[in-house]
């Protein structure tokens, strides 16, 4: 369990990063977490003038379960029955990646996987494949897990030239921090 309750955590994080994006507050918790994780990296790594060739490869364990439950609650009372369109929109895990794409106009390849645990092998293979086959210049990878106030976001950018070698060992080490 994280010590800080998510709403407080995410509000502080968004202030620290200096985010100014009104649509942020409409997102569900998983999307907010993924979005901010991505923002922390992209704000210094994005070209504002030209189109950015950054693919997105994200994964988690609980899919969109936290929001699924919220949505289920909105249709559970047969007397007081009001499914919420805004909540329903977020009952898919890949919407968080969609939000990142919308903000930064990334019309690139994007994928979302569900694993029972973070898999550095899989992530590094997929990212390497995209870079080596020339499909994309950079890959933003992320493990973004959110369920009932247990949250973890591990987001990293991979490109051909950089300071830290992109291999399973390094990824696992950084994840464990």
């Amino acid at each position: 369990m994280n010590d800080v309750l998510f709403p407080e955590f995410i509000k502080n994080a968004s202030k620290t990063i200096g985010l100014e994006y009104p649509k942020f507050f409409k997102m569900d918790n998983l999307s907010k977490l993924a979005f901010l994780g991505a923002e922390a990296i992209l704000k210094d790594n994005i070209d504002l003038e030209n189109e950015n060739d950054i693919a997105l490869v994200f994964a988690n364990k609980s899919s969109s379960l936290d929001t699924d439950v919220k949505y289920q609650d909105s249709i559970s009372d047969t007397e007081n029955y009001f499914p919420s369109p805004a909540v329903f929109v977020y009952t898919l895990p890949n919407i968080c990646v969609g939000e990142i794409s919308i903000k930064h106009q990334l019309k690139t390849e994007n994928a979302f996987f569900v694993f029972d645990d973070f898999k550095p092998d899989f992530m590094s293979n997929y990212a390497s494949y995209l870079l080596e086959s020339g499909k994309t210049e950079k890959v933003l990878c992320g493990w973004v897990e959110y369920y009932k106030n247990e949250y973890k976001a591990f987001v990293y950018l991979v490109e051909k030239l950089g300071t830290i070698a992109h291999d399973k060992q390094n990824i696992q080490t950084l994840y464990n921090k």
């Binding site: 364990k61 899919s63 969109s64 379960l65 898919l92 895990p93 890949n94 994007n110 994928a111 979302f112 996987f113 569900v114 694993f115 029972d116 899989f122």
Partner: peptide, 26 residues
């Protein structure tokens, strides 16, 4: 409930012992 469990059940039914993964992009 988990979509991962779904995939694992399918893998079990076809006797697969190899890689199993799940994609959820609507």
């Amino acid at each position: 409930h988990d979509i991962g469990d779904n995939s694992q059940k399918i893998a079990n039914c076809i006797g697969l012992k190899g890689m199993v993964t799940t994609i959820s992009t609507a």
